[in-house]
Design a protein around this nucleic acid. Structure first.
Ligand SMILES: [Zn+2]
Ligand SMILES: [Zn+2]
Ligand SMILES: [Zn+2]
Ligand SMILES: [Zn+2]
Lengths: 158, 158
DNA sequence: TGTTATTCGTTATAGTATAACATATCAACT
DNA sequence: AGTTGATATGTTATACTATAACGAATAACA
């Protein structure tokens, strides 16, 4: 399985498809992708990087919106709550979901050099799955994040 | 593999053994388990729960130490840096390592009801391992955390 | 004992997130 | 169209988490 985010790709397509998918899914499920929520999603999609809430806030302000922190956090709650984005716990930041439209336990690969974040997802027989089967712990939400070097940055480092 | 933390056990032994292990390993490796570092470790060990840096600070203060945030964060840096404790990214908090003495990618199971945190560890064939093998990403640090209900809290919920 | 590296004390400040409440907008029904 | 209840936004204030910076004290070593 190749994670999404590090490989060269047509990113304009990538963004457009994600927005279209979000639109469709919101319509389907009676969710409201309001202008602010949509804009925050666009900002997250603009790069395959984690972006902090206050960076998003700054971008909104530079758009001319008179925005305060709760505005951003509410939009992020919506987006993460419905699987359009993920919180990157390691960075206290957020990233657009690369495979929206399916329930999944995201696996985020965070490059410490270029700051890009790629996403793949876990199959069931992970350490997490195994541990919980053995212990009776019921997982409601799983976070898997790896920090390291992406292929490009490894080449540049040599 | 049964995670450590949820099962009933002799916790006094548990703490004593952990402190002894930390002492031994520090001596072996020329590390200094100073009074403050040791005290912070004791505080973390006192419960199989994640504890916030400022809660630790309050406990130190109630000990009579005139402590400021950097004191705590430095101790935590030491403890996490040498594997005596882990940062719980999901909670911006810290927990004593339940299997110190071996390099490991910890898997933390966080009960959202009783706040206890159990620890197990990942074998190599995790989703992370697989994802990175395929993609060429080099993992330097892995975070795996699951939030949910521990066995005890499931029973109580019914 | 002098030298160097590490740790600690202290002040200030940066960065992240939420509580609380007023206002506005939407959606569904009468 | 007007009423009503639910959802979303605007706004202020504040809580929580973490680090920078620098000097003083302490430990390790020659
Ligand atoms: Zn893209
Ligand atoms: Zn995703
Ligand atoms: Zn114990
Ligand atoms: Zn551990």
């Amino acid at each position: 399985m190749v994670p999404i985010g590090f490989e060269r790709h047509d990113h304009a397509d990538c963004v457009e498809a994600a927005i279209a998918a979000a639109d469709a899914r919101c319509t389907e499920n009676g969710l409201r992708l309001t202008p602010i929520r949509r804009r925050v999603l666009e900002i997250l999609l603009s790069r395959h990087c984690a972006i902090g809430a206050y960076d998003i806030l700054d971008i909104l302000k530079s758009d001319g919106v008179k925005a305060q922190p709760p505005l951003v956090y509410r939009a992020l709650d919506f987006l993460t709550g419905h699987g359009f984005a993920h919180r990157v716990e390691r960075l206290n930041a957020f990233v657009a979901c690369a495979v929206p439209g399916q329930r999944h336990a995201p696996v985020l690969l965070i490059c410490r050099t270029c700051a890009r974040v790629a996403e793949t997802h876990a199959e069931d027989d992970t350490a997490l799955g195994r541990a919980t089967r053995d212990s009776g712990f019921v997982v409601e939400r799983a976070v898997m994040e790896a920090e390291g070097l992406c292929p490009t940055c490894q080449e540049n480092a040599t």
